[in-house]
Design a protein around this nucleic acid. Structure first.
Length: 432
RNA sequence: UCCGCGGUAGCUCAAUGGCAGAGCAUGCGGCUGUUAACCGCAGGGUUGUAGGUUCGAGCCCUACCCGCGGAGCCA
């Protein structure tokens, strides 16, 4: 098979005659010259077709091309200052592969609902390309980070017999003769089993929440990466999260600058994401809120507006640790110094993007954990295997979960997480 | 579930209670360097639904439907 040519590789083919295959992004024409913008997924290249060069027939052929028609364009590659990508093609021939019907997404503005209904087509636009590439870079960086530190990927099941945390509303389904099954809301408990087996593991997969949340930060189906490490305490956990976030952001800056430019992201704000990140206790967070005139009572969980106020005090992500144990999950270990607080930690992204990481040191004592299950009215049978992890060689261990879509949204500087995943699932949207 | 905002041409939007419009898209014509190209012409409407007030309703009133994003909950 003959080698293919792609737009992101044109620099190596200046002066050569090549053929590009793709779709018509836009067409501008005068009486004797046409500018054909071809996109091939790697970029957009402008082809210049001159009537006196290609002849009457070929020149007229280009008139059949509607927006998003598929075609092949052959010509000589030339460096061109005026072209956005730096290169142009002097077209000698085009082959029409398929003529597109009237394309609904025009180069002008559209509303989000209109675009969401056509998400399968919306993905062709340059802004969505940029977001998908940044998402790809983030996920690639995550795998690279853990692989480089000796972690093993541990895939957790999607079908689970009961709630992991006992708080969220879960999607329910029938599971043959075994009764109800639920779509996972977290792979963490399985990650803990993995950490006891392999030391350092990470779970990476989709998670599901049936809560009727209608905000720019919520999806019903989203991706989460959850490292879990044996013998790590809360401070080790924060060290890991700090290294992790810095690694991700620096990789995006290093490898996806053109995409960030397309998204008009403020680069300085991302460049500020360097270790060390500030670490404040919940108590200190409450002080910040009270200083800013919020009537906040100790013991409540931080709300979305509270998180925004706190994150605005810093130029980089901030750790908030040692929350009141009442508002946190059953498996989080209480602070031996102060049993009223849990060894929990959240990371609030800068610029008001909210909670991107939630984690904790886990309760490793069998009797305490059993009591916590009872306190939360959780079915003990379903957690019997989890209690085994405390029966057989229990050790201190910690982990956290990072929401991929919120991270993409923050790094790209987006208004809404719906653009961060190819096909978002929200309470009132399951298509396309 | 609660609070707020919205629904007018294919799309984005305008229209003191007084002839329903513009830009883009589409079609036709023009233009040899365009960058969301430009210029000219044309087609395109049950103003979310059902009632009500009024000489007259896109606009005011009532109910309903749909959507949006915020709260709660969370990543």
């Amino acid at each position: 098979m003959a080698s293919k040519f792609y737009i992101d590789n044109l620099a190596k083919h200046v002066g050569q005659t090549v053929t590009l295959q793709g779709w018509l992004y836009n067409l501008r024409s005068s009486g004797k010259i046409k500018f054909l913008l071809l996109r091939d997924g790697t970029g957009v290249c402008q082809g210049v077709m001159v009537k006196s060069v290609v002849g009457e027939e070929m020149f007229a052929k280009a008139d059949q091309l509607t927006q998003e028609s598929a075609f092949a364009m052959t010509g000589t590659v030339r460096a061109e200052q005026r072209a956005p990508g730096g290169f142009e093609m002097d077209v000698t021939n085009i082959e029409i592969i398929s003529v597109a019907k009237e394309y609904p997404i025009t180069p002008k503005e559209h509303g989000v609902e209109f675009l969401a209904d056509r998400r399968h087509l919306w993905l062709r636009s340059s802004r969505q390309h940029a977001i998908m590439r940044v998402r790809h870079e983030i996920i690639r960086s995550i795998r690279e980070f853990f692989a480089g530190r000796g972690f093993t990927l541990l895939d957790a099941p999607i079908f689970t017999p009961a709630a992991c945390e006992g708080t969220s509303t879960l999607f329910e389904t029938d599971y043959f003769d075994l009764g109800k099954a639920y779509l996972t809301q977290s792979g963490q408990l399985y990650g803990e089993a993995g950490a006891m087996a392999l030391g350092k593991v990470y779970v990476f997969g989709p998670t599901f929440r049936a809560e009727k949340s209608k905000t720019r930060r919520h999806l019903t189906e989203f991706w989460m990466v959850e490292p879990e490490v044996a013998f790590n305490d809360l401070n080790d956990n924060m060290d890991l999260a700090e290294d992790f976030l810095e690694h991700i952001v620096s990789n995006v800056l290093k490898n996806r600058m053109p995409e960030l430019k397309t998204l008009e992201r403020n680069i300085q704000k991302l460049e500020a994401v360097k270790r060390p990140f500030p670490r404040i206790t919940y108590d200190q967070a409450v002080e910040i809120l009270q200083k800013n005139g919020v009537a906040f009572e100790w013991g409540n969980d931080l709300g979305a507006t509270d998180e925004t106020i706190i994150s605005e005090q810093f130029d980089r992500p901030v750790f908030v640790h040692r929350y009141p144990s009442e508002v946190k999950a059953f498996y989080m270990k209480r602070d031996p110094q102060n049993p009223k607080v849990a060894l929990a930690v959240d990371v609030l992204a800068s610029e008001g993007y909210g909670e991107i990481i939630g984690g904790s040191q886990r309760e490793d004592d069998y009797d305490v954990l059993l009591q916590r299950l009872k306190d939360h009215d959780l079915p003990q049978e379903a957690f019997d295997w989890y209690l085994d992890l405390r029966r057989f060689g229990s050790v201190p261990h910690s982990g956290f979960g990072l929401g991929i879509e919120r991270t993409v949204s923050w790094i790209c500087g987006l208004e809404h997480v719906r653009e961060t995943i190819p096909f978002p699932r929200m309470i009132y949207r399951i298509t396309p």
